[in-house]
Design a protein around this nucleic acid. Structure first.
Lengths: 246, 246
DNA sequence: GCCCCGATGTGCGCTCGATCACACTCTCCG
DNA sequence: CGGAGAGTGTGATCGAGCGCACATCGGGGC
């Protein structure tokens, strides 16, 4: 839009490449992929780029929410801490996914912590800009509703899992979930989960103690179903996991 | 709008009263209260009134979703059944609240069962009408987003409760929740929950067996904290419950 | 090279809550 | 009025998973 006329041509090219890259990301993001050409470029300009190192806190529960985030690169985990210090992991997010939009929607406080699981590049957008953006674009509003609907279903699913299934079953289900969301096919018919995960984190995802998670993983590995692979789990026989998962 | 000119004056008055009643309900409903005058009357006309008797099924998991509902009177419970037959109760809803909007939002299938807990009067709206209604009214879309946000928070909260707290704590918390949502102040400083609830249902809400729920309730009653009152629970000392709830 | 720390592996006792098996008490309805 | 069925009360048993206590192991940083 407002391209400065007296800009060094190289700088200008750089900026152009930068914008293209942003637009490409937006096109891949479920939320923003409903937008077209001009709209996308407009939006791309409004984002700020922020980088976080592995383990860094992006926001904490209780803080006021001033922005929402879109992941360009890296993984982000959302967790909640109990009064007694135990942690529960709600989600692991990757490129193209958004987070932090909830507290923006209802102008409330953040209700969980967000941390980078590895070095991450995020696009962030001010709450009010997010709103004006949505207000003028019904398609975007609709897509956001769909996304929140999906989250809601997942959240209910998590509750169900805890009530209906025992720990080994929950582990099997979670591994399959992770494989579906963050996995890539391996030779020999398995699936590799391409995010580094600790057993502690697995424990926090399925609501068991670290020790239990360890024993469960060992048991699955002993049966040849998975290969823990030092935190890069490899599902060797997904079929067996599927059977175990119901 | 389209009031028939040759109508019997009594019939006309009846219709008028009927419309007024509907508009009053819409004004009380969190979702629709953002609408004003003409809009409300338009919308009021579009609803169908449906009645369900105690225990009747409104919809079942797996069915296609053709409509969303607004409760005019009665209570509706949303539940999910496990493969093994165990049930989990997600919510108890009352006048002014909507349900069934989720599957409409993403054109999916119903993901839980809805049943009337006592005789209920519902207003129902076709999915497509719901959508056109929202599309033209950003304020309504925003309110819906807020409501879904609230639901999402509640769902995450339910998951947390299961992971972080033991059964007695969950019971205390759930009783307080119920009191807040469906309670009315009693003389002597207590709160009466004005919906009939069975212990089985309480069990399904907090994710324990019916027997455990019974023992927990007995224990709370024994301490004088609550009076079960044949399924119309009365919180005698909410302060004690609050202490027990953390 | 050495130390420290984060991640993992494992034994053991204990507790919470599930499950089974009943009895008891209403209310509704034929 | 008598039986059926829903809701409730309670004991006994058993096992999953927690908590604590360790041991091990690998890789940085100094």
């Amino acid at each position: 839009m407002s391209s400065a006329t007296h800009e060094n041509p190289i700088t200008q090219l750089r900026r152009q490449a930068e914008v293209d890259e942003r637009v490409e990301l937006l096109e891949q993001a479920p939320l923003f992929s409903v937008l077209r050409g001009e709209d996308l470029r407009d939006l791309a300009d409004k984002f700020h780029v922020v980088r976080y190192g592995r383990g860094e806190v992006i926001f904490r529960e209780g803080e006021p929410a001033e922005r929402m985030f879109l992941i360009a690169d890296g993984r982000v985990k959302l967790t909640i801490a109990s009064p007694s210090g135990q942690e529960l992991m709600i989600a692991v997010l990757a490129r193209g996914q958004i987070f932090g939009e909830l507290a923006v929607v209802d102008r409330g406080l953040r209700d969980m912590d967000a941390r980078a699981m590895k070095d991450a590049t995020l696009f962030s957008l001010q709450s009010d800009q997010f709103w004006t953006m949505i207000e003028g674009r019904p398609a975007l509003a609709r897509r956001l509703l769909e996304l929140m609907g999906r989250r809601l279903r997942r959240a209910d699913q998590a509750t169900q899992d805890l009530v209906f299934f025992d720990a080994p079953t929950r582990l099997a289900r979670k591994l399959l979930d992770l494989a579906e969301e963050h996995g890539s096919p391996d030779d020999n018919g398995g699936v590799r989960i391409d995010t580094r995960v600790t057993q502690e984190e697995i424990a926090q995802m399925i609501g068991v103690s670290r020790e239990s998670a360890n024993r469960l993983i060992a048991s699955f590995a002993g049966r040849g179903w998975i290969d823990w692979n030092d935190g890069n789990p490899l599902l060797l026989v997904p079929e067996q996991l599927l059977r175990r998962a119901r």
